[in-house]
Design a protein around this nucleic acid. Sequence first.
DNA 1: AATCGGACCAACCGCCGCGTC
DNA 2: CGACGCGGCGGTTGGTCCGAT
Length: 371
Amino acid sequence: MGRGRAPCCDKSKVKRGPWSPAEDLRLITFIQKHGHGNWRALPKQSGLLRCGKSCRLRWINYLRPDVKRGNFSPEEEETIIKLHKTLGNKWSKIASHLSGRTDNEIKNVWNTHLKKRLTMKDADQSPTDEAKEASIKECSSPSPSSTPFISYGDQNIEKEVGNQEGEDCVSKRPPEKQEPTTVISGQCSPTDEPKETSSSSCSMSSYGSNFSNSSRADVTRPQDEMMSLFNFGGPYEVHNALFEATDHQEVSDDLIEIPLESDINFWDMLDNLDSSQSSEVTQQQEFEPSQSSNFGEKHIKEVECSQWLRDLENELGLVGTTCEDQDDPQKNAAEQLVAETQRDEMILMPEIDQGMAYFSMWPPSPHNCDI
DNA sequence: AATCGGACCAACCGCCGCGTC
DNA sequence: CGACGCGGCGGTTGGTCCGAT
């Protein structure tokens, strides 16, 4: 405390703004392999042009396997309201009681509608409007499809919320803890307020991904759509298996075979495909080759990468490219991909298929997403 | 069809607390 | 014991989307 605050990173050398799919993938892959022991060092080790804080934030708020996406269920909202009553703006504490929810997300929900809802209630002590109905619904008639997500297993919720009457709908709900990647069926629950449940929320479930939920942004943002195709959960279902292992720093390589930082070309290819990617600092500059050798699996990865690229090219119809050489084929594939991508304004989307990652093209426009 | 304003959310910023040296 | 580094937290902002006009 009271110490001069050192900047977390050199802002001039890091990329800022929205994360690209390639960056997400790189971060995910790196953390899968190595965990996130040191956030500050992570960007350099992974080759990301981001500050460690940004990586951490991205991971915690979005990429983490157990992060839950989508609309908050009425039960969750009720819990937030109650916890906020006692804890105030301690978003992280509140988040700790809502499994899969991040403080940032809770904060957003609070600031966007919960706060308004409460002020409406306060303004009108005898509400007869929608707010009242909504609140009644929330407590009295949870839809069978709207499984509560609250981690009621957190027994200390009642310690911290000591003044909870215990008569509320929340406390009456069974401690039903769901799998982190379970589809959030409540999104389309009839109990949801229409204004907060976009119709597209439901339709997105047709993606076949658990990332089906929710918010408008989830539906329309390219990276979200991309991730829905990951076959990941959470947003990234990558994981349940993967990240259980990651947390223990032991990831079996057969789980996901996305070429990691050992192949700069791969990441460059991805980065090139991302039109928004800044090219101020090259990966090569930031990432020292010696680091890649530390991983000791370079050769294996090259083979895997080669195989991966072959599949990729097959997937993309880029047949005819020889893949015997490690560099040129990749480069050719990348160049073709870049050309095609730029032409079609498409972005490479990865899929994980039985341990083999490959990419499929996907339409960035929501209009093209009616699968 | 175009414009505008609100809603929403991801990401950034700066401060704080804790652990380590 | 103080300086430093790092992670975490909460507030705020900027961008995007959508509905209303």
